[in-house]
Design a binder for these strands. Structure first.
Lengths: 313, 313
DNA sequence: ATTTCTTACGATCACCGTAACAATA
DNA sequence: TATTGTTACGGTGATCGTAAGAAAT
């Protein structure tokens, strides 16, 4: 049994049981992988993959167990490298954050600005995607943390650190009749065409849920992954926008009217997602605390070792 | 970086930083280990050990981190082997239980009898030791579980599953004046010579603590690791025995008088200790549930993934 | 003086890549 | 027929053990 074999198994699973693809992505030969897999199976005394003739078509039950353990083991291998980097130079390194547009554009900038000032030697990179892509990036080790609303807690292999609560606002072109309303209701909203987030994003499900609970069927004329895209189409008069409250900027969005909608929808919580059992470099703790001051190093460490995800903010 | 290097690092640390000893215990050459360690240190860019000239004298701070991660990683390697064994034959295998004399002699027998009847293909072995030795055995992978009172929760790398509560009884030769007392007090006990457990064992600390809280200094004339040894010396008239209630057998110990002492000492809890992140074979779950029926597979699994140790019994 | 780690060197063995083959869709 | 995994084989390179050397107690 060796590490290479475990990498091979993992990559085959990730590539949809295609050994040739796995070989290519690992820059090695396909027969080499094939042989190592048979060897691993022989040593463990189990079949990891179900074969139809010469084709891998499924992961066996023991194979699933092996994959789960191998993932953690290879994660620890990565942790060892992090320890090396941390102690060879605490000020140099990389920090990859996987997040959604709304976070990247509206909530992260101040934390990031402070971070790059404090850690000029750290190469920071932002990777955008929808919540499930973001989680994948962290699980694959491509990103150090995920920052998103929802979807993180769904992954059993990710640890959830709640950061802050937020709700939505309605934006409309200045002069829109709705802006005169004293207190906004869902029924008011349902009268107008709506522009809001894509299904996969930022608590769109909360919006749908609120309308459904009242038996209303809002007419969503456009959905987007991106608060700025939504506001652009609202400016064009396509409809009312429902966006995260962070996404309304009083200065830049002065040409849009805004109405609080916090009483209409359930609160959402934005969280940081970390790989379970991850070993974090000191500047990662610093970044997290900069973004959510209650997430001190001690709190995060306790959650990492405890494995628990349940605490309130 | 490879698995061998991590095994080497771990073994060197276990053998008190003696590379030669580590080489012998791993059945390999000392220069081979030495070279691999330097190679690992070079790859990680850190020193794992502090050297005085050519001698390893200490583990560095990054070294401690590496050791902790390597332990979990190698544990996962063992988990992979367990998966292999489980699925190649669910009925065959080994179960190593590390425990104290009192558990082995008085609380485990019925669970063990049921287990060997249900799993005749499983080789069961009991390894006795004091609580801290027991924990070590589990951490080193020599035993699958520890069963003991106290000391398990002290190890951060062990998971604690509380099994049952118990307290102590006082035993004395028949005819001993104390046996006539209506209700036993600590002051009564302090008047007589006492035989009880060794400091490392079975809640001896609770006994000392109770006396101290009352300003009493009991005269412990003999302390032993073993309830049977204690009873033997009580039979010889050496003093009063304070033993776990499980250790008094109404039939075999008919020649001894017994007094309940539950109101004098704090309750103790006997727990099972498991390696964190361990992957357990199905018969291990079965054994645990046989010993402590509230510890069903579902409960134990939840605790293993959650990493938490805090639940009540 | 003895124990202990490091360096040097040589042999073995495992791994990897190329090529040919077999089986599936 | 094209794609994909297995078997066969040969070369490279890493690992390991022996032997000699250096530094510490």
């Amino acid at each position: 049994m060796n590490l290479q074999q475990l990498r091979y198994v993992q990559e085959i699973a990730r590539r949809g049981l295609n050994v040739s693809e796995a070989a290519e992505s690992l820059h090695t030969s396909q027969p080499g992988i094939s042989k190592q897999i048979r060897q691993l199976e022989a040593e463990l005394g189990i079949e990891i993959f179900v074969r139809h003739g010469k084709r891998l078509v499924e992961v066996t039950e023991p194979g699933r167990q092996v994959l789960a353990i191998a993932a953690r083991l290879l994660g620890d291998l990565d942790n060892l490298r992090q320890v090396g980097r941390e102690f060879s130079d605490k000020t140099k390194g990389r920090l990859a954050i996987a997040t959604t547009h709304t976070q990247a554009r509206y909530t992260l900038p101040t934390a990031i600005q402070a971070f790059i000032a404090a850690y000029p030697g750290v190469e920071l990179s932002l990777h955008q995607g929808n919540p499930s892509q973001i989680c994948e990036m962290v699980l694959r080790g491509e990103a150090d943390m995920a920052i998103a609303t929802e979807a993180i807690a769904d992954h059993a292999d990710l640890l959830t650190l709640p950061c802050y609560r937020w709700n939505r606002v309605v934006v409309a072109p200045l002069g829109h009749p709705l802006l005169a309303a004293s207190r906004l209701t869902l029924e008011d909203l349902a009268d107008w065409p709506i522009v809001t987030y894509d299904a996969a994003f930022a608590g769109r499900s909360r919006i749908d849920h609120a309308f459904q609970a009242r038996g209303l069927a809002p007419r969503v004329v456009l959905s987007a992954a991106d608060s700025d895209v939504i506001k652009t189409y609202v400016r064009m008069g396509l409809g009312l926008g429902i966006v995260a409250e962070m996404a309304y900027d009083p200065v830049q969005d002065a040409d849009l009217g805004v109405l609080d909608a916090a009483h209409l929808f359930e609160t959402s919580v934005t969280s940081i997602g970390l790989r379970r059992n991850a070993w974090l470099r000191s500047y990662v703790y610093a970044f997290i605390e900069g973004f959510a001051p209650h997430l001190t190093r001690a709190v995060v460490e306790r959650t990492l070792v405890g494995g628990g995800s349940a605490f309130d903010i």
